[in-house]
Computed example of a mutant assay.
Amino acid sequence: MHIAVVGAGLAGVTAARALHEAGHAVQLFDKSRGVGGRMSTRRTSWTPDAQREHPLAFDHGAPSFTATDPTFAGFIQDAATFGWVAAWAPRMAPGSRAETSTRWVASPDMPALCRRLAGELPLHRSATVTGLARVAGGGWQVLVDQVAHPGTFDRVVLAMPPAQAAALLQAHVPTWAMAAREVAMTPCWTVMAVFHQAAPEWDAAAPSTGPIAWAARQGSQPGRDVPDNTAADTQSWVIQASAAWSAQHLEDDAATVSAALLQAFQALPGLAQAEVQWQTSHRWRYSVPRNAPWAGECTAWTDDALGLGVCGDWLGGVGVEGAWLSAQALADAWCDADPAAPGHCHPSPAMFEAA
Rank of each mutant, 00 (worst) to 15 (best):
S32W: 08
D49P: 07
P90Q: 01
D49K: 03
Q27A: 10
P48F: 01
T68N: 11
V35K: 00
T44A: 03
E21Y: 00
T71E: 14
S32I: 15
R52E: 13
T41D: 05
A25Q: 14
A87Y: 02
A57G: 06
F58V: 11
I76Q: 04
F29I: 14
A80N: 08
G61M: 03
A86F: 02
A93N: 07
R52I: 12
G34E: 14
F72G: 07
G34F: 04
L56G: 03
R91M: 10
L28S: 01
V35G: 03
Q51P: 06
F65Y: 08
P55A: 04
H54D: 15
D49Q: 05
I76S: 01
E53T: 13
G23P: 07
F82C: 09
A93M: 10
R42P: 08
S96F: 01
A87G: 12
L56P: 05
S96D: 06
P55V: 04
A50G: 14
T68S: 12
G34K: 05
A93E: 12
D59G: 08
Q77V: 14
R52C: 11
P70Y: 00
A98Y: 05
E21M: 03
G83W: 01
H20K: 05
Q77G: 07
Q51T: 13
G23V: 12
R97H: 14
A87H: 03
V35H: 01
S96G: 03
A50W: 11
T41Q: 03
R43N: 11
E99N: 10
G74W: 04
L56H: 03
G74V: 11
G37S: 05
V85F: 00
S45K: 03
E53Q: 10
M92Q: 10
S45F: 08
A80L: 07
T47A: 15
F82V: 14
A57Y: 00
G95M: 06
V85N: 01
H54L: 15
A86G: 08
A73N: 10
S45M: 09
S45C: 09
H60R: 07
Q77M: 09
A73C: 04
S45Y: 04
A25N: 11
R42S: 15
L28R: 02
A67E: 11
G36F: 02
W84Q: 13
A98G: 09
R52P: 06
F75H: 04
D78H: 08
T81G: 06
A22E: 07
R97F: 10
G34C: 09
G95C: 06
T44S: 03
P94Q: 02
G95I: 08
H24N: 07
A62H: 02
H24P: 06
H20M: 10
H60K: 04
R43K: 08
R52T: 13
R33K: 11
D69C: 02
P63F: 01
F75Q: 14
W46Y: 03
T44L: 02
R43E: 15
R91P: 12
F29T: 11
G61L: 02
T47G: 12
G61F: 02
R52D: 13
S32E: 14
P94S: 00
F72Y: 06
H24L: 06
D78E: 14
G95P: 07
P70W: 01
G61H: 02
A57Q: 09
R42H: 15
A80Q: 10
R38Q: 11
A50T: 14
P48Q: 00
R38D: 09
T47V: 15
T81D: 13
G34I: 12
W84P: 10
R43Y: 05
P63T: 13
R91L: 13
W84L: 15
P55M: 04
K31W: 04
